[in-house]
């Protein structure tokens, strides 16, 4: 649905986006994850046609944003980091204005009512936008992006600055929208992305450092799992007993009856290790996972590339 190819954006000598390529399938919810200043917003601004790329192409459902801007923009609903709201307009007047400039063909009154019902702002439709709370403003921004039922939704940090209750509401909203639309949404909060998205792209310093299904991300990043053990018994017996277990790649003794076991992340070896060690008569005193959590792998990933970036 959305195809980004070799996208690069240069400001002066700074590469804000550095040769990014990815595709998003129809109906997919893609999380765009990265620390502040990683190039998320720039990439989204390029996809939506607000900025142009220094090189590379963005194709949405077969049309290219620079060659066919009008047609392509009509397929995208965009919620920028700061929702583009006119404070002096009422919610309804604002949505009618956005409906007009987006040249939506659906029946006006009904469509706007429908969108307001989806994001639950029907009760404030006659209030001035400047008098709304932050959460409501964000939802008006959502409504604006949904006008015309665009197949692709691009949401730039939609939950920033909201209270926990509002964050949960917005998350549920995005999850619901993901059933009908292709959604690309950015965040610097990992738990949020992993809660909503099917797939995560981690971006740091303008580069993609990981692109994986949400549940495989930590495996992709670290490549393997690790189990830390403390076992009584001679090290050779323990090592060979563990080595017999299916999925184990390498056993290292770290002294003091402690062992680190690297294993293939696709299988759970804990049961096998327990059985094998019990059979060998060795007592397990401690067993814990030494692999990285999603959070740790994210940090590792982004700090690594930042260090690399710093050396340039």
């Amino acid at each position: 649905m959305v195809e980004v190819k070799n996208l690069t954006k240069v400001y002066g000598d700074i590469k804000a986006v550095d040769d990014i390529s990815f595709t998003v399938g129809s109906g997919e919810v893609l999380g765009f994850l990265g620390p502040n200043g990683a190039g998320k917003s720039t990439t989204m601004n390029i996809i939506t046609g607000y900025l142009s790329s220094s090189s590379g192409t963005v194709t949405v459902d077969g049309t290219e944003i620079l060659e066919n801007p009008k047609e392509t923009k009509a397929k995208i609903g965009y919620l920028p980091e700061i929702p583009p709201l006119y404070p002096d307009m009422t919610v309804k007047a604002y949505l009618e204005f956005m409906y007009d400039i987006k040249k939506v063909k659906l029946p006006k009154e009904e469509h706007i009512d429908e969108v307001m019902a989806i994001v639950k702002i029907s009760d404030v439709k006659d209030r001035l936008i400047k008098n709304l709370s932050k959460g409501y403003k964000q939802r008006v921004g959502f409504a604006q992006a949904l006008l015309g039922n665009p197949p692709v939704l691009i949401l730039d940090e939609p939950t920033v600055g909201l209270d926990p209750k509002q964050i949960i509401e917005i998350r549920n909203l995005i999850r619901g929208l993901g059933k009908k639309h292709t959604v690309i949404f950015s965040s610097h909060v990992l738990s949020e992305v992993s809660a909503i998205c099917d797939r995560i792209i981690v971006i740091s310093n303008g580069k993609i450092v990981a692109d994986a299904k949400t549940d495989e991300l930590s495996t992709v990043i670290s490549g393997k799992g690790q189990l830390l053990l403390e076992v009584e018994g001679s090290s050779s017996t323990v090592s060979s007993a563990i080595n017999d277990v299916y999925g184990v790649k390498k056993v290292t003794s770290t002294g003091n009856n402690r062992y680190a076991v690297d294993y293939d992340n696709t299988v759970d070896i804990r049961r096998g290790v327990f059985n094998s060690l019990t059979k060998a008569g060795c007592v397990i005193l401690e067993m814990k996972s030494g692999g990285l959590t999603l959070e740790e792998s994210f940090l590792q990933l982004t700090s690594q590339s930042q260090r690399k970036g710093g050396n340039k």
Partner: peptide, 14 residues
């Protein structure tokens, strides 16, 4: 200042 130009420039109008 209000960043509403983003809405105008990403809408399908010239």
């Amino acid at each position: 200042r209000q960043k509403t130009d983003q809405a105008l420039l990403t809408a399908p109008i010239s």
